[in-house]
Simulated assay, not measured.
Amino acid sequence: MSTLSYVNVFARDIEALSAFYSQLFGFPEIEAIRSPIFRGLDTGKSCLGFNAHDAYEMLHLAEHADSRGVKFLLNIDVDSPQEVDRLVPVAQAQGATLVKPPYKTYYNWYQAVLLDPEQNVFRINHML
C-alpha cells in the first residue's frame, strides 16, 4: 500500500515558515535532512517539507515558479474542537490570517481555514 511521506511547500523563507508550523503545532524539525534550501518537520504520521524557490530549478519546475493561486491545502488534525478554537488565535498571533472561523462542516468536522504568513491555505481540523 502506498503512503504519504511528505507534503512539500515552496516558501520564500523556509526558516520562518517551517518555524511557524513547528511552533503552532509542536512539530519537531528533522535536523538530519536540513539543507540551505530545505527544512523538514515530523508530523507524527508523515512529514512536512519546506523548499526554497531554488528547488524549482533543481526539480525542473522553473517555468512554474511564478504561478499564482492556491496549489495545495494543508490539513492539520488536532485532538478536539477546543484545540481548534485554542490554536486559531495562536496562529493569528504568529502571523496567520483567519479566512473562515471555526465551524462544523456538512461532513461532520470542526475546522478553521487560515492563511499562513506566506498566504498558503491551511485548515485546523477535528473529525467529530
Rank of each mutant, 00 (worst) to 15 (best):
K104F: 14
G40W: 03
Q94G: 11
H60S: 12
Q94R: 09
I124A: 05
L48H: 08
R34W: 15
A96E: 10
V84E: 05
D85R: 03
S46L: 14
M58L: 00
P101K: 13
L48P: 12
Y56R: 14
A65C: 02
P101W: 10
V84I: 03
P81N: 09
A62V: 05
Y103E: 13
S35D: 15
K45V: 06
L59M: 05
L74M: 10
T97C: 08
Q111Y: 07
E118L: 12
R34N: 13
Q111F: 03
Q82V: 00
V90C: 05
G44C: 05
Y107E: 01
G49H: 04
E63F: 05
G44E: 05
F122N: 07
H53C: 08
G40P: 04
A91T: 06
Y56Q: 12
H53Y: 13
K100R: 12
A96V: 08
E57Q: 11
A93S: 12
D79I: 01
V90H: 07
G49A: 11
N108Y: 07
Y107A: 04
P36Y: 13
G95H: 10
F72N: 10
H53D: 06
D77S: 09
N75Y: 11
S35A: 15
G44Y: 02
F50G: 01
L114G: 08
L48W: 11
L48Q: 09
G40I: 00
G44R: 07
G44P: 07
P89T: 12
V113K: 06
K45M: 02
E83Y: 07
R68G: 03
R39P: 10
R39E: 13
G49K: 02
R39F: 15
N75L: 05
N108Q: 06
D42R: 10
E118Y: 08
H53M: 02
P101F: 13
E57Y: 03
S35F: 14
H60C: 04
A32S: 15
A62F: 06
N75R: 06
Y107R: 03
Y106F: 13
V99G: 10
Q111C: 12
E63Y: 04
N108V: 04
S46H: 12
A55V: 15
Y107P: 00
H60W: 00
